[in-house]
Structure formats: structure tokens, C-alpha cells
Design a protein around this nucleic acid. Structure first.
Lengths: 223, 223
DNA sequence: GACATTAGTAACAGTTAGTTACTAATTGTC
DNA sequence: GACAATTAGTAACTAACTGTTACTAATGTC
């Protein structure tokens, strides 16, 4: 690394864990690092394709492929970056939680989003932007489905929505809307959580819909 | 300008014009430019605040302040950029259309979004991303209102929504939803378009809303 | 077997959106 | 001035959707 300014790609990788969203952090290897942890990141070389770097960094740090990955913003103010990058592009990514990931050699660890250790200031801003991005885009991109494994119960799916939205949802309304959207299909397996009636497993299988409603949603605007 | 790689901020500035969205382009001053026109852009210096550069570039090129401006993505693949930037951050911006803008000295010109002249490839990708961004965010950010002047008729507002959404809306439904959202308030002026009954003018005046609906919108997901 | 617990559904009521049809106010034409 | 044409705006009906309550179903625990 010379003194020439570099650019970076930084990944905010999220997975559901219990009642929280977890974010993947790795050890900050910088010698003068004030913070022990930081986001996984990589320098950008000329002509790199950003989306591919992001996918590679996410896989190397977590040991698995991110099911969904999208840009969450570019950052260039004076806030400190562990690699002294001039310009940093943040990506938000999601994947199911697995106990055996991240692999040992990567040195990464999942932290609950609400209880993160100190990270470099620019990374702090990126995490906030990425989490906001997940919440904003979950109704246009299959964010929630990629936070779960290939099969899941409807209660698990509802819990993920509640996690991202930050509020409780009504069971009957949730399922009715889900059915109307033709997004999932049941498979012939049931999963028992120990107590209570076993839940049927579903798979994410979006089907062509009849054209959506014609109206406009002003509700999300305001103030 | 040395040989060191630079980064750029590039602006996709939009305004409504007739039945189309117009995009602001400027002359490409590069000597070997294959295309005559390109997006307004500027190089990023260390520690610049991206949002401020974007606002400055937009104002310099158009002669007015953009009412709404947001990042639309970062681009770094091999696609050619007029300033040979390694990494480029695109911003989408909107403003009302004015015949006297852009000012002569800026050398800019509005082009209908569907009939753009050739632009450098990276700028082409940015324009597509920015227009998609406007459509996606218009229900969460007051994009439509900033495409109009401070006062407007409801028919004008509906026309902007139809322009961005690319489909016709029903007058009664549109107004009912708008009223329920407490986003505009009438002022005591009427505007005559030459033919027909004069329309009352309104002003964008969002008021605190009762908390929005509790449900989930699956409709926008899908295949 | 009684009970707690979780999954899933039925059915009602209140609200919202799509549509049709109407009234209101202006300009242009004869 | 009567009348058509044109654009603004509203009323009212219908269909669809949402929120809610209450129920049934299947399992483990005591």
C-alpha cells in the first residue's frame, strides 16, 4: 500500500439471531487501530466490478454466500476508515444465521446490532445506513426471505418481518396478505419447536402476479 | 490533474417538461470525447462531503438549487467516464422545469429522458439507475413535490405521479388518498389553463400523521 | 386426561380503493 | 346569448382488503 489514496468496499452483513439482527465484524488489523473490531472490507482496484468485490468480501468473511447484497451508500467525509480509504462504498447483505459461520480462520464474529463494540467512525455510519436500507427495501426486495434458510415456517418469517419493522404483526392478516402475493409455497414437511403444534415448512417461490394495485401510497411520505 | 486515479460525483438532474422527464446534460469538454454531451460532474478531493459537492455541481450546472438530491449508486467498472474517474458516485436530483435554466454560460441543456443523445457509457448506466431510483423512492421521499414549483394544481401533481409511475391514475382515488395523507393544503388562488374550469392551487405542507397502517406490503415483491 | 403452548382458520366489521356518474366553472363558436 | 367543449372537483356505490376476535388443531408437560 503506497501513500496514494485508495477506495474501499465495506460490507454490513446481517443475519437474524434470536430476537435481534446480528452484524458480522472482524478484527481490525491496523496497528494504530483504536477500535478492535471493524466491518469486513477490501480495497478497490482499477476496473473492479463493485458488486463482485462485495460478494467476495462477504463470502470470505462469513464463510457463506450472501443471499442478497446491495449498495447502501458511498461515504467520503473526514470520518476515519481503517484503511484510510478516501471514498468508501458500503454494501448491505443478508444471510441466514449459522453457528458454524464465520469460520475460525476468518476471525469474524456476529454481534447483536444493538450491542456493537466500538468500530471506526465511518463504519459506524455505514452500519446505520445499511440497517436503514434493509428496512426501507424489504418490501421491494426479498430481504426477509434471504435472512432465512431455504425452508422456514410462517411464524419464523413473521418474526423476521417483525424484527426488521420493529413492531408486532397480526398473524391472520400477515398470512392472508402473504397468500395473496403468491410468494411462498408449502412443502410436505413439518417442524416441531418442542412445544405446541408442529408448523408446516414453506419455501420461497415467487410466482407471476396479476398486476398490483393501481393506487398511490402517500402514507409513507409525510413530515 | 496528475495521473493518479480520481473519483467523481456525477449528477442526474431531472425536471418535468411536457409529457416527459427531462435530464440535464452539459458539453463534454474532453479532447477525445466521442460523445458531445455528458452529465455534470466534479472530481472528489480528500475529505469532501459528497452531498455538498453534489449540491454545488447541480446548482452550477442548472442555475437553481435541486429540491431533492440523493445518492443513486457507485460505479467503478470498466465503463468509460469522461474524467477517467476510477470510482464514480451518481446522484439523482429533481427540480421544477424553467425555461431560463440552465443559464447560458453553463452550456447545459435539458433533454427528454427518452431521447437522450449518446453519453459516455458510465453516464448512461447512471442515468438508468437514477431514473429507477426516482420511481422507487417517490413513495418515501417527496420527489414528486420537488419536481413542481412551490404552488401547483392537483392535476399537475397527478400528471407528475403518472409520469414517474408510467401509468394513468384515477382522479377521485388520487385525491382521496392525497387528502387522507395531509400532504398538501389549498391556498386562496386559482389558475386557469385557458380552457375549462380554473383549478385551485395547492402548496406542499406535510403535517404529522396518525401512525400509518400496520400491515405489510408484499405486493411490490414478486418474481 | 387436564393444561399450556404454538399453528392455523373462519367470520365479522370497519376501512380503503376502483369506478361511474354527476355538478361546477370557464373558453370558444355560432 | 345559447350552447358545445373542456377541465376541475365531488358524491356515491361496489369490491376488495385489513384488523380483530374467536375459534379449532396438534403437540409436550404435569
Amino acid at each position: 500500500m503506497s501513500g496514494a489514496p485508495i477506495n474501499s468496499i465495506d460490507i454490513v452483513l446481517c443475519a437474524p439471531h434470536g430476537r435481534h439482527l446480528a452484524v458480522l465484524l472482524v478484527r481490525d488489523k491496523g496497528k494504530r487501530a483504536r477500535e478492535k473490531w471493524c466491518l469486513p472490507w477490501a480495497a478497490v482496484d482499477a476496473d473492479d466490478i463493485l458488486d463482485r468485490i462485495a460478494a467476495d468480501v462477504a463470502r470470505d468473511a462469513s464463510g457463506a454466500r450472501a443471499g442478497w447484497l446491495a449498495q447502501a451508500g458511498a461515504f467520503a467525509d473526514g470520518k476515519r476508515h481503517p484503511g484510510k480509504a478516501q471514498l468508501s462504498v458500503a454494501y448491505a447483505g443478508v444471510m441466514p444465521y449459522r453457528d458454524d459461520a464465520p469460520p475460525k480462520h476468518a476471525g469474524g464474529k456476529w454481534f447483536a446490532a444493538g450491542e456493537l463494540p466500538p468500530v471506526p467512525p465511518r463504519h459506524r455510519a455505514m452500519i446505520d445506513a445499511a440497517l436503514a436500507q434493509l428496512r426501507e427495501r424489504m418490501d421491494r426486495a426479498p430481504v426477509a426471505f434471504h435472512l432465512l434458510g431455504p425452508t422456514f415456517t410462517l411464524s419464523e418469517l413473521q418474526a423476521v418481518y417483525e424484527l426488521l419493522l420493529g413492531r408486532r404483526l397480526h398473524k391472520a392478516s400477515f398470512r392472508r396478505a402473504l397468500t395473496a402475493a403468491f410468494l411462498v409455497e408449502p412443502i410436505d414437511e413439518w417442524q416441531s419447536e418442542g412445544r405446541g403444534r408442529p408448523a408446516q415448512l414453506f419455501r420461497y417461490a415467487p410466482r407471476k402476479r396479476r398486476g398490483g394495485r393501481g393506487g398511490v401510497r402517500f402514507e409513507l411520505l409525510g413530515g
